[in-house]
Design a protein around this nucleic acid. Structure first.
Length: 427
RNA sequence: GGAGGGGUAGUCUAAUUGGUAAGGCACCGGUUUCGAAAACCGGCGCGCGAAAGCGCUUGGGGGUUCGAGUCCCCCCCUCUCCGCCA
């Protein structure tokens, strides 16, 4: 959520910057009208309430003195005031409700360094690492390789649950576990992240805090339970919300956490995309990196975070690139996002394996995550950031495809062997 | 799931059985001091307002009342005990 007084005072600038995201800014016309109506109701409420608050204790005093007639007169006056106040409150609540609907739907303002464009064609590649493996033969895709080695069984996953669910086994399951441990070890032992193992079911307040609700409910799995509980689409939700409604100690910042969880996405609206394999599934495993920082350092941290995630791919020897997403291509809550894309041989292209975003105060304002810059100072919203470090399902695909050999076997990257009991090769 | 105790501003703690949130600590500013400590004065949740001010705020939401921290209803969290369970 944006700062409402910032929007009020910089309406034209807000309009202009949101337009670069392809956001329909006509709702901002209603914003002005509702904002004025709301504030007028609040002011008038204040005037009437002041009179009520003055009279009300007088009634008690009069009654104690036995002056019941005088008390009765004032009582009637206060009762009339109350009716007017209730009417104003109803007006304020209505305006506030509509205003909130607008504010909750407004995406973050893109940072000035973000390339402007209406979709992914305007994204800018900022760097590239390594080279695609020279296989010397037409690469098999991960589904074919997985079936061939008995490490991936999608037909059975479809039987157990339905389409778009993963089932790895044997060395395939071990590879997933190895990737998880490898990533967590690098981030916690070398990059200084605190390890977190959070709930994977969250309430609607948490999803509101990070921005998935109310606008993107269709992307989530909602549980049939007596309360509105959802499966997490990413560990960003529980980990960021650890600090919801808290005032953090200034010297505890920056907070940096790494969490491995399963993630669940309904993938509504993506029928027909990536239907083969486990690139796009309803359930996947991911290591997520989350930061809470002082506002002034958030852009330096975004670079650091992106590099921490990239380090995993460097250690695995996987060809990849970092892309600055354009204004038209990144998630609503973010002010700036880098995607890290890994080379997928069977598709002859790069595919997203991590998304690293600076949300500035957008999430912190929704989730009320604050800190006190120094003793006695007013509290301020922190900046939050997060990025995948990395999506394990897609890393699995990248390893299997990039390390396939002419004889059909799959070489295990050096960095993972100690996590796989010394296994050097599958098949 | 059952029984009982709790939830008050950053923190700790009051509030005549309904009368409009009092204090302590920490922190900030000022006075004092060579400087500091102590002491004293003021500030110390959010909102509206140019300001003076005014309003809102006792876990959340409803209700009764001229008036609710206090009474009634629903819900959340937490502590103790019992039951169940991995």
């Amino acid at each position: 959520m944006l700062d409402i007084s910032y929007v009020r005072e910089n309406l034209d600038e807000v309009r202009r910057r949101l337009a670069t995201r392809g956001f329909d800014t006509t709702v901002l016309d209603r914003f002005e009208e509702l904002d004025v109506r709301r504030r007028r109701a609040i002011t008038e409420h204040g005037d009437l309430a002041a009179e009520r608050n003055r009279l009300s204790p007088e009634i008690g005093a009069l009654m104690k003195e036995g002056k019941n007639d005088e008390a009765e007169a004032k009582r009637l006056r206060v009762k009339a005031l109350k009716e007017q106040i209730d009417a104003l409150d109803a007006e304020r609540d209505a305006a506030e409700h509509d205003l909130n609907e607008i504010m909750f739907g407004i995406p973050n303002l893109p940072h000035e360094s973000v390339p402007v464009g209406k979709d992914e064609s305007a994204n800018v590649e900022v760097r590239r690492w390594g080279a695609a493996p020279e296989l010397g033969f037409e690469p098999l895709d991960h589904v074919t390789l997985g079936e061939k080695h008995g490490i991936l069984d999608l037909p059975r996953a479809a039987k157990i649950t339905g389409t778009r669910f993963p089932l790895t086994l044997g060395a395939g399951a071990l590879l997933e576990r190895a990737l998880m441990n490898f990533m967590l070890d690098v981030h916690t032992r070398e990059h200084g992240y605190q390890e977190v193992l959070p709930p994977v079911i969250v309430n609607s307040d948490s999803l509101f805090g990070t921005g998935q609700l109310p606008k993107f409910e269709q992307d989530l799995f909602k549980l049939d339970y007596e309360r509105p509980y959802y499966l997490i689409p990413t560990a960003e939700v529980p980990v960021t919300n650890m600090f919801r409604d808290e005032i953090l100690e200034a010297d505890s910042l920056p907070r940096k956490m790494a969490a491995h969880t399963l993630c669940f996405r309904s993938e509504a609206g993506s029928f027909g995309q990536d239907t083969r394999g486990i690139i796009r599934v309803h359930q996947f495993s991911k290591v997520e990196l989350v930061w809470c920082v002082r506002p002034e350092e958030s852009y330096a941290v975004l670079e650091k975070l992106t590099d921490d995630a990239s380090e995993i791919l460097r250690r695995l020897g996987l060809h990849h690139r970092v892309v600055a997403l354009s204004t038209g291509d990144f998630t609503s809550s973010s002010a700036k996002t880098y995607d890290i894309e890994v080379w997928i041989p069977s598709q002859h292209t790069f595919r997203e394996i991590s998304s690293c975003s600076n949300f500035e105060a957008y999430q912190a304002r929704r989730a009320q995550i604050r800190y006190r810059p120094e003793p006695g100072a007013k509290t301020q919203f922190v900046h939050t950031l997060n990025g995948s470090g990395l999506a394990i399902g897609r890393t699995w695909v990248a390893v299997v495809e990039n390390y396939q050999q002419a004889d059909g076997s799959i070489l295990i990257p050096e960095a993972l062997r100690c996590y796989m009991g010394g296994l050097e090769r599958i098949g």
